[in-house]
Write a protein that binds this DNA or RNA. Sequence first.
DNA 1: CCCTGATTCGC
DNA 2: GCGAATCAGG
Length: 178
Amino acid sequence: MTAGWTDDRVGALKKLWLEGQSASQIAKQLGGGVTRNAVIGKVHRLGLSGRAAPSQPARTATTFRTTRPRPAVTTAQTPQPSAPRRLEAVQPKPVQPAAPAPAPIPDLPGTATVMTLGAHMCKWPIGDPSSREFSFCGRRASEGVYCVEHARVAYQPQVRRGSKESGSDLARSLRRYI
DNA sequence: CCCTGATTCGC
DNA sequence: GCGAATCAGG
C-alpha cells in the first residue's frame, strides 16, 4: 500500500523538516516505504527549502545556487529562465520594545521568528510553517536545538538503524538524544 | 564511501 | 503530484 501524502503525513514532514531532520531521517521515521528522494521531492513541492536548523556541519553548500545538471536531453524542451523560487519574503520588521502582548496564547507563543531565532534558542516550531505567524519556541536550548521539554518530546523512543556505533555514528547518536 | 540537499524528468 | 535517477557538494 503506497501511502500517499496525507495531511497527517505532510504535517509531520513539515515539522520534522523544520526541526532540522535530514531527508533520510524523516523518510525513515515516516516509514511507509518513503525514500529520502520522496521526502525531498515533497518538501520542494510544498515550497519549503531552507530550514532553520541544518542537520550536519559543513553541508548544504548547494543551497546557494549552482546545480546546473545537463543530462543531455534529447529534446530541447522549454528553456525555462530562472524563476524566483526561494521563499522567505521576510520584511524588515524591527523588534517591538515593550510589547503589550496582544496574543494571550496559553500555549506560550514562540517569540522567536526565523530572523530573531538565536543560535541557542529552542527551535521547536509553533504553528503552521507556511503561515506568517509561524514562530519558534525561543526558550533557551539546553544543549542541542531544543529546550529540555521540547527535546524530550522530539526525541522519543527512536529506534536506531544500525546495530553498531562508531565514528560518525556518534554524531547521529548525539543528535538523537540532544 | 559515507552523507547531504537540488534538480530534472518520466510516470 | 509523485519519486527514481541523477547531479553537485562536504
